[in-house]
């Protein structure tokens, strides 16, 4: 095993030992702009977040249930389970006659709920929606939850890896990457409204079995 080296030997780091606070102030002023172009903020990654007035355990329970996606997403409907390991197929009604395959990968201890999805095929679920639920008491000092939702711009968004499986004339999901911030913001608002509505009225949290 190779010997560990001290971080001071790694080039390009800004640490107080070598960059004094005046120089650091200049660096930070340079990084801070008044406005940021959309593609600089949402070009490679699409992070959004929201406060939800509903306890984190209830938020987790709802988000980890695959059937909830029929309620709070804009266009995922008509689900059927394909295998015991949780692979589902549904219709993404935003693309005409588009099958969407997905799996929910959740960890209650870490309070993360990830949706692994793909259009047209279920062998490679490369569209991955990463969600972390945090008790709002910890970060905002009030009851409820904060949800962080992240997407990364996988190269497949730029080029459909399975063009032969696409319905004829159907636009590719990645053509809408520039609208992901907007589309996901609308869907996260749906999630917030559903959870807050049910929690405030003490209704069952789980999604309705019928669509």
């Amino acid at each position: 095993m190779k010997e560990q080296i001290h971080v001071s030997k790694i080039p390009g780091l800004s640490r107080v030992e070598h960059v004094d606070k005046h120089e650091m102030g200049g660096i930070m002023a340079d990084i801070t702009h008044a406005v940021y172009p959309h593609d600089q903020v949402y070009g490679e990654y699409c992070p959004i977040q929201s406060y939800i007035n509903c306890p984190p355990e209830k938020v987790f329970e709802y988000m980890a249930n695959p059937l909830s996606l029929r309620e709070w997403t804009y266009s995922m409907r008509d689900f059927e389970m394909l295998s015991d390991d949780g692979l589902f197929r549904g219709k993404d009604k935003i693309g005409s006659n588009t099958d969407i395959y997905f799996k929910v990968v959740a960890n209650k201890e870490a309070m993360v709920v990830d949706y692994h999805c793909a259009w047209d095929q279920g062998d490679e679920l490369w569209m991955i929606y990463l969600n972390r639920i945090i008790p709002a008491e910890l970060v905002l000092g009030k009851p409820g939850s904060v949800v962080f939702w992240q997407n990364c711009c996988h190269p497949n968004y730029k080029k459909n890896p399975y063009p032969d499986l696409a319905p004829k004339g159907r636009p590719w999901v990645g053509d809408f990457w520039d609208f992901f911030y907007a589309g996901h913001t609308v869907e996260l608002e749906n999630l917030k409204r559903i959870l807050e509505h049910r929690h405030a009225r003490d209704l069952p949290m789980s999604p309705l079995a019928i669509q």
Binding site: P37, H38, D39, P171, D175, F176, D178, F179
Partner: peptide, 16 residues
């Protein structure tokens, strides 16, 4: 129409 998102993004970027 399939390129609406991209056309909006192009205009948002090109003119500024």
């Amino acid at each position: 129409e399939n390129k609406t998102a991209m056309i909006v993004a192009r205009g948002n970027k090109a003119v500024p």
